[in-house]
Design a protein around this nucleic acid. Structure first.
Lengths: 301, 301
DNA sequence: TCAAACATTAAGGCACAGCTTAATGCCGGC
DNA sequence: GCCGGCATTAAGCTGTGCCTTAATGTTTGA
């Protein structure tokens, strides 16, 4: 007769390329995995997994058992969620995906505070360069993104408005001057963020009177963490495009200055997406409410 | 997140009239049950059971959880059975119901031998005066009965033929003589077995040439264990109706003699019934095969 | 009123499941 | 051939879950 932890163990195995990788994912040593699997196979008198190099190969029995196990685990999770909802409890896992910079500076603190208030909550934050890719990689409940994601059939709830601005440090401006027209940017050092699969070097600018132009820049520095780019801008590396949330206080105190202030870039609202295939649970709803409430508020620094 | 043992625990509770009764059924002390339930309720922040005298009262949440739990446990059992079948294993619980005498003398030994050969098998034999009633009382996989049960839509597999005979001890015959015709039985001491809800004091006799008569006897001794009745017959208490399996060796060596040997009673074949709502599993099939094989064979004594 | 049955609380015990460490062997790539 | 990664085995450890015992209080029925 199976125990839930046995079923969980097996599904974790089936998601890993090797027993050693499964051990790392489970946070235990390889003998723990090896021995547990062997014990299970011995109890069942069945071979579940063929060991060898390359991807773990499930036997027919192993594949059948794991398929069935997933169904049972889904039922148990669903039941657990039901009972949690009936009690109005906020507990269990909360898987959040967010970009590097925004995730670290704005989402993580919210999760910390939310988690502090709910002892049984298990927050899991995944900072990714490519949040959309991460959606396909595994568990997620909430995805936070800077800018609406195109071509997705998932409702994107707006958490806060957010403009994208061109900025440079005051020091850079003193030493190199600033461009007065978009075309002059070509003579400047430009840095970009590689935050997702979007084309970071194509800037869509809207100028006075509504005229639009696409400007192809040639980045000479870049990073997949937007906050690194901000730091480089502060260090005088050059001109960068950043979200307003990221640079608003720098602009206020003059560390950074606007570049081409008469021209604007497309807004990049902060949005939250809920996994349509995930559970509907109170903790997720409450977390998103909290996120919206705190992110709409002006940043503290 | 629920553990299987939690779900089992709850379903055991729901089948009991009190926490104390559940403890007895589970083979633990009342504090074990009381504390475990309290811990579970504390974890869930939900009241599952209202304590008080009389039948345990489930809350709405408790009832919902237990209902869902049963579904999950069924799935897990079904999966366990599947995997057992794939491995050709003979293991797990085997619930058998049988009458007192036949169960003790003929079924139990088979279960012992079968269980000895299969270490992971958990045989559970329930000896009952009223096997049919026991069918409604809880778990059962196989029911063994002496005589076909009427008005049941369950297939009754014949394990062995079996006649019912009227017998008395040789000593009784010497002291009181034996009846030569059915009507003379009224002048004798008669004992009956109360083995089920059937009318034990109405004997349907078939005589020479096929004539039939119903004979209403007035029992002066009786017991719900047929083997006690045999012992009393051997002790000279009077005339009894017994199955051939029970008295064949006594007749052979002369301890008992036939009464009205030209008259017969309806046969009472030994039959096995499989619970149509139970699991289809190898251990049950194999056990019934073994039972049929051993019960068809002549008894050893 | 008393006894029996039930439920609960507090405190302590302990078995065993789930690891860990140490060692060894295998395989593949450089 | 060497190194790194993987899998396995043997032996030992330990935390904790699941009890137990002892005591107390409540309720019900005779």
């Amino acid at each position: 007769m199976f125990d839930v932890s046995d079923l969980r163990f097996l599904t974790a195995l089936s998601a890993s390329p090797s027993l050693a990788a499964a051990a790392r994912n489970l946070g235990v040593t390889p003998p723990a995995v090896s021995q547990r699997l062997a014990l299970l196979e011995d109890r069942l008198h069945l071979r579940l997994i063929e060991r060898g190099r390359g991807q773990l190969r499930l036997t027919a029995e192993g594949a059948y058992l794991i398929d069935r196990a997933k169904g049972v685990l889904d039922d148990i999770e669903s039941l657990s969620e039901d009972m949690s909802a009936r009690a109005g409890r906020i507990d269990g896992p909360l898987h959040v995906i967010a970009p590097f910079g925004f995730g670290r500076l704005r989402v993580a603190p919210v999760m910390t505070r939310f988690g502090d208030e709910h002892a049984e909550l298990r927050p899991m934050l995944s900072l990714r360069e490519d949040p959309v890719g991460a959606m396909n990689d595994g568990l997620w409940d909430v995805l936070v993104h800077v800018g609406r994601l195109p071509n997705l059939r998932i409702t994107q709830r707006k958490l806060a408005p957010n403009r994208r601005l061109l900025v440079a440090s005051a020091d850079y401006a003193r030493r190199f001057g600033l461009p007065q027209r978009p075309k002059e940017i070509a003579a400047h050092r430009v840095g970009v963020v590689r935050e997702n699969r979007a084309d970071a070097s194509l800037w869509l600018l809207t100028g006075p009177g509504g005229i639009e132009m696409n400007l192809r820049v040639k980045p000479v520095f870049g990073c997949n963490d937007g906050e690194v780019l901000r730091a480089w801008a502060l260090d005088g590396f050059g001109i960068v495009e950043r979200s307003e949330w990221s640079v608003s206080s720098d602009l206020r105190v003059g560390r950074l200055v606007r570049v081409l202030p008469d021209w604007s870039l497309p807004d990049a609202d902060i949005v939250a997406l809920l996994n349509p295939r995930g559970v509907r649970s109170l903790r997720i709803d409450k977390f998103v409410e909290r996120l919206a409430s705190e992110i709409s508020a002006p940043p503290m620094a």
